[in-house]
Computed example of a mutant assay.
Amino acid sequence: MKQILIADDHEVVRSGLRAIVESRADWAVSGEASDGRAAVAMIRELKPDIAIIDYSMPVLNGLEVSRQIKLHHPRTEVLILTMHESNEILTESLLAGVRGFLLKSDARHHLIAAIDALLNHRPYFTGVVVEKLLHDYLASKKDKSKVLLSLREQNVVQLIAEGHTNKSVGTVLNLSVKTVEAHRASAMRKLGVSSTAELVRYAIRMKLIGP
């Protein structure tokens, strides 16, 4: 029996995904998580074959969850789900080691095929996603000035945008306050911003948090 974990902060989405997964007699949902930190803890305990991870989750977003999975549980394959068509999200997911990527609008028709592929350790991207990946690659060749934040900088920005202090960000990410301040300053420098409000606007634009 193949074990699959579902992480999404919307219960209705988790229920829909569970119904699709459990339509296969040889698959079982081993756990559900509603935020990124809970997802990491469950994966550590349950060691599922597949983790279906929503990109936009509170506390730790899908990219950080994916990074931690690939670092500590490399045998667990990751399928990122997102409702946003974004070249930046796709690129960052690939950099985090994600080998499966689906738009939520495609999940009903492609989820089973995506899980099948990942269970056989093959990547899965829909045609729309591949087209976006190619477009992003070509655009990056033309625009070397485009700056992407590191995963850790994105985590810090997300938590700050969610209202956390530097101290509480450090607690969540297990970093010192000094390190959090360094990541925050680095992110602000890369983005060319000078205030927390501008960081929040960036986080909303990149779908790290809801508007």
Rank of each mutant, 00 (worst) to 15 (best):
S145V: 06
Q3T: 13
K144E: 09
A117P: 12
N120I: 09
G36L: 05
D54W: 14
V147Y: 05
N120A: 15
R44V: 07
H164W: 11
E45C: 03
L102P: 07
L103G: 06
L5E: 13
R122N: 11
L191S: 07
D35K: 09
H72Q: 12
E64Y: 08
H110G: 09
A114S: 07
Y55Q: 08
T165V: 11
D26I: 09
S176R: 03
I43L: 04
T165S: 15
A161F: 03
K178R: 10
V169R: 02
R189S: 07
A117R: 13
S194D: 06
E162M: 05
I50W: 10
H121E: 09
H183T: 00
N166D: 12
L191G: 04
A203I: 04
R108Q: 15
P123G: 15
L175W: 01
A139W: 10
P58M: 14
K142H: 12
I43H: 02
L63F: 02
E92R: 14
E85V: 14
I160K: 01
P48C: 11
Q3A: 14
E77R: 04
R75M: 11
K141P: 01
R122L: 15
D49G: 07
S195Q: 07
S93K: 02
D49R: 04
S30D: 01
I4Y: 05
I204S: 13
K142Q: 15
S93H: 05
I112E: 10
T91F: 09
K132C: 13
F125M: 14
V180G: 00
A39S: 07
H109K: 05
L138M: 10
L17W: 06
K144G: 13
S140G: 15
Y137A: 15
R67S: 11
S176G: 12
P58Q: 13
M206C: 13
L17G: 03
L149H: 06
L148C: 08
A51W: 04
L71W: 06
S30G: 08
G62P: 01
I80C: 02
A187I: 00
L191Q: 09
P211C: 10
S176T: 14
E77G: 12
S56R: 14
A7V: 04
E64F: 05
T76W: 00
L151I: 07
S140I: 10
Y137N: 13
S56N: 14
L60N: 12
I52H: 01
S105E: 06
L199T: 04
V59I: 15
E32I: 15
V193H: 01
I89H: 00
F101W: 07
G192N: 05
K190I: 01
I20V: 04
R201V: 11
H164S: 08
K132R: 15
L138P: 02
L102A: 12
G163W: 03
A25K: 08
K146A: 13
V193W: 00
K47A: 15
S195H: 09
S15Y: 13
D54Y: 15
D35Q: 09
E198A: 13
I69C: 02
S86R: 03
R14M: 13
H135R: 08
L138R: 13
R18Q: 14
V13G: 08
A25D: 14
L63T: 02
S86Q: 02
T179K: 04
I53W: 04
V177T: 06
H183Y: 08
R152P: 00
I69G: 01
A51G: 06
G210K: 11
D116V: 01
V65K: 00
L5T: 06
